[in-house]
Amino acid sequence: MRAYALAVLMLAGCAGQQSAMHAAGDQASTLMSLFRLMMWVCGIAYLLVILFLGWGLIRRRSAADTSEQPYHKLMVGWVGFILLGLILLVVASFLADRSLGQRQQVPLQMRVTGHQWWWRIEYRAGNGRWIETANELHLPVGVPVLLELRAADVIHSFWVPNLAGKMDMIPGKINRMTVTGRTSGWFRGQCAEFCGTQHANMALAVKVEPMGEFERWLAEQARPVSPGEGVAAGRKVFESASCVVCHQVRGTEARGRVGPDLTHVASRRTIAAGTAPMTHGSLRGWIIQPQAIKPGTSMPPSDLSPQDAEAVASYLETLR
């Protein structure tokens, strides 16, 4: 029973929305093809080693058989196989690396910046403006997207296993990678470089969707908050509290750049980079005591009264 349970757990990593074995993008498919080739070459070599070992253990040379000729032939054949396998893997690795590093013309450009412990994401709109969101990356199906990867504090690493390989995000340096999603749906990314106490709670939700849906979503994200939008009481509290120092809500007096942009925060699936679901209770708890939900986060505890925190949570729920 334990062996069965262990096998189930191991196989669970071969599929799903955070598995490199379930390729959903061109770059992940390239890496998966290289992995399969390596497994075949190494698997055949391992099998041959086991067969030769078994043959050597069970074979008994007769006293009259003193010829070393068969062993010389086997040795030559084995060395030839090793060289052939190494050449095959080197060539395949070179071609895969060349494919992944190719700087093709891409119609879309996005910026992803790693913070402790969340993701700032910026999209270049059709008019050249940059539209900012957080913790959710939207990609159109079949369209190559150039990602500019940056880090605001410490070294992070961008990794969405279903779509592409890992790439480090280093302070003061811009790394670039092209991602082409081929399968619609939600996928999960993760910071792959230990970056502090909440490294495990630095998730990235990625949605690959048809181009039409992506364009509609981006147009909605580009829209600022209208003057009469939202719960009036909560908006008043939000704009008069310290929230505006760190957060931005386009179309209001909130223009902070320290924390995530909250213009359409309620349209996201989670808060705090995947730490809690996007619900009224989670918003209220995050506003009152974020350290209880994500210890070590840069957001300080709020000095709002329970009534004011409730009003701000109700206001944020309207920002879709």
Results as ranks from 00 to 15, higher is better:
A5D: 15
A272F: 11
P301S: 04
K166A: 01
S267P: 07
L48K: 10
L218C: 03
V265C: 08
N135R: 01
G274N: 02
S62E: 14
V106R: 02
T197Q: 11
Q291P: 04
R216V: 05
V112M: 08
M32D: 13
S99Q: 14
C42L: 15
S282I: 00
L139I: 04
K294Q: 13
T252G: 09
P300V: 00
H72Q: 12
S62I: 04
A311C: 05
A28V: 03
L11D: 12
H199L: 04
T180D: 02
T30L: 15
S240D: 11
V245R: 14
Y123E: 01
E310T: 14
P227F: 11
K236L: 11
E136T: 08
S67Q: 08
M167S: 12
L283D: 01
V237M: 10
L74P: 06
S33V: 11
T197N: 13
R120T: 09
R284D: 01
L47D: 05
G228S: 04
L74G: 06
S302M: 05
T66W: 11
K73P: 04
R269T: 02
A203P: 02
V249N: 05
Q18G: 00
L9I: 06
M1N: 12
A266S: 15
A24Q: 07
L218G: 03
V244L: 09
L88E: 05
I50M: 11
A200G: 11
V145I: 03
P306I: 03
D261R: 08
G259E: 01
N135H: 09
P224A: 04
E317K: 14
N135W: 05
P227W: 08
I87P: 03
G56I: 07
G43C: 06
V106G: 10
T252E: 00
V79N: 05
P306R: 01
V231N: 13
